[in-house]
């Protein structure tokens, strides 16, 4: 992905996260915990299980719909980061020659089934992670992580990183643009030029950090980044986690699609 494409993708997710919907208003802790439970439930299925995973799609679909997040945007991002999982998974059909039948008289390689399971799990977990950041502002997630017990120093790192992410990406993008504009062909994009760009950007970053430190001192900084936001968990947050959690447990242990299929089959027959 080109620099500008990644940059605009991050910017769009970031802007989405400041919307105001029923999902955005939930406490960040509730969403972090629910997304984590979701990931654990999804990956806990054995490698040949595909159908039982399908009900889990309801979670990202609901979050996306209630949070008013464009589904195409999330889908494109999921596809964009899929290469490693696809790369590893594609070997399953090659190395797993067993045969299973997915319907009477329709034999399929077991490797393809486990490959499909990897892809479905991938789509589920990645879209859930993207929807978490699309419906929760990053500072909100950081406050949540702090309240969940992560060290203050680490959380303040995350916050500073986020604050200067866009500033430095813009600065870097200007430099990269200037490089690409004048490096007809490969010469200008080699390692030597790259090292100099990174070195210069590093020195500028250090100088910026010194100016920021000055601005912090001017406002009484004495080694601790203060925080005063202490939102209490509301009933709706607890309800959200409880509902999501029970849904995951239900779908993990009850094969909903099979039951539904038989029910429909029974009615038709």
């Amino acid at each position: 992905m080109s620099f500008e494409a990644s940059y605009s993708g991050i910017g769009r997710l970031d802007r989405l996260s400041y919307r105001d919907t029923i999902i955005h208003r939930l406490d960040p802790r509730a969403k972090v915990v629910a997304t984590m439970l979701f990931a654990i439930a999804v990956v806990s299925f054995p490698k040949y299980e595909v159908l039982s995973l399908l009900p889990f799609f309801l979670f990202p679909i609901l979050i996306g719909a209630l949070g008013d997040i464009p589904p195409g945007f999330i889908a494109r991002k999921v596809v964009a980061v899929s290469p490693f999982a696809v790369f590893v998974g594609i070997f399953n059909p090659l190395f797993d020659p067993g045969v299973v039948s997915i319907a009477p008289g329709v034999p399929v390689s077991a490797g393809w089934v486990s490959f499909a399971a990897i892809l479905v799990k991938f789509a589920l977990t990645i879209s859930a992670a993207l929807l978490l950041i699309a419906t929760t502002s990053f500072p909100g997630i950081c406050r949540g992580l702090r309240r969940l017990g992560l060290p203050a120093l680490f959380v303040s790192q995350l916050l500073f990183l986020y604050r200067y992410l866009f500033v430095l990406m813009e600065e870097t993008m200007r430099v990269v643009r200037a490089r690409d504009m004048r490096s007809f062909g490969v010469r200008g994009t080699g390692v030597r030029v790259f090292v100099r760009i990174v070195g210069t950007l590093f020195l500028r970053t250090v100088e910026r950090a010194e100016r920021i430190y000055g601005a912090m001192l001017a406002r009484g900084f004495r080694g601790e980044v203060p925080s005063m936001r202490r939102e209490a968990l509301r009933l709706s947050d607890a309800f959200f986690v409880a509902a999501a959690g029970s849904f995951f447990v239900l779908c993990r242990f009850v094969p909903v699609p099979q039951m539904l299929g038989r029910l429909v089959g029974g009615l038709a027959g």
Binding site: F138, C142, R208
Partner: peptide, 12 residues
């Protein structure tokens, strides 16, 4: 200070 990006260092 001169550059507001250096002056505004907190996330919101």
């Amino acid at each position: 200070f001169q550059n507001p990006d250096d002056q505004l260092f907190m996330p919101t």
